[in-house]
Design a binder for these strands. Sequence first.
DNA 1: ATCGCAATAT
DNA 2: CATATTGCGA
Length: 326
Amino acid sequence: MREEEEPNWFARWEEQLPSPEELTPLSQTLITPDLAIAFDIPIAASNPIPNPSLHHLHPAPALPPPAPAPSSQPPPDFDSPDHLSAAASGGGSGGGGDEPARTLKRPRLVWTPQLHKRFVDAVAHLGIKNAVPKTIMQLMSVDGLTRENVASHLQKYRLYLKRMQGLSSSAGGAAGGAAGGGAGGPISAADAATDQLFASGPVPHHFLGRGPGPEPFMPFVPVAALQHHQQITAAVQQQHQQQYYHQRHMGHFGSPTTGGYDHGFLARTVPQPRMHRTVGSAAVGLVPPPPPPAPSAASYVEDLESGSRGAGGGRRVLTLFPTGKD
DNA sequence: ATCGCAATAT
DNA sequence: CATATTGCGA
């Protein structure tokens, strides 16, 4: 009953995807080390490098989870509920020092390309069929990730796919409508470019004259295309306080060079084929803008870092990853 | 009970 | 602008 088999991505998945049964708890504190330290939160230092490596486990994973059957196996095991430091808003806090933990609101989750990748990978791996928030969430094994988080993101993700479903032509886009789906077919597309696309404009978009046109755009189609294993780090930021600064006011297509970083992703809900981006990537000055000299249809898989930190910016959006990564 | 999605709030 | 929340139907 297997229908399609793409040993390519599939094989890779095996390497980094822990079988639902083995699912290794990648507990990646939703908090960044810095943040944790800032809050005096003892991070279990027992996880310097989660499970970068993998043990070649069963050779035949039989694509879909073992038995799409409903009730089947218990969840992979989630550990700590959440230590999300809610970052006291400053104001009131009087008490101060208590252990913020449950019952407190979690800071807004920042979907970083990496995290998003994990998401996309999971969806691709599960297939439209099982790609439901709960499953995805569990497969992602991201500590702190909630079903709502995924659900919300998933919603947007689907919208994106639908939106570009018709535009394929035109370069760049690459898309393919695979989505569809209706069930039955595992999405097959490749979005490898996800993170990369996020920050870079793989789309040879010639600056279409659209100045005031909002177009955050979310570049990438579903599919899995893993390559390396990296730590998924979820970054969080305060819930209130001023907010996001990076706004695309560039209005002019001229030189979107450094200046605004961002990981654009997902687009609005207006059915407008507008595509274009201002690209930006890397805030602290790194990851130079990859000039797309070869508009090949090939998609590279790489992850970029957006280590933008409060540093000079002003805001503390800790979207920081383990710098290291070799 | 959970998903899916629109609307709405922050 | 990106997420989070909420409400309602399936």
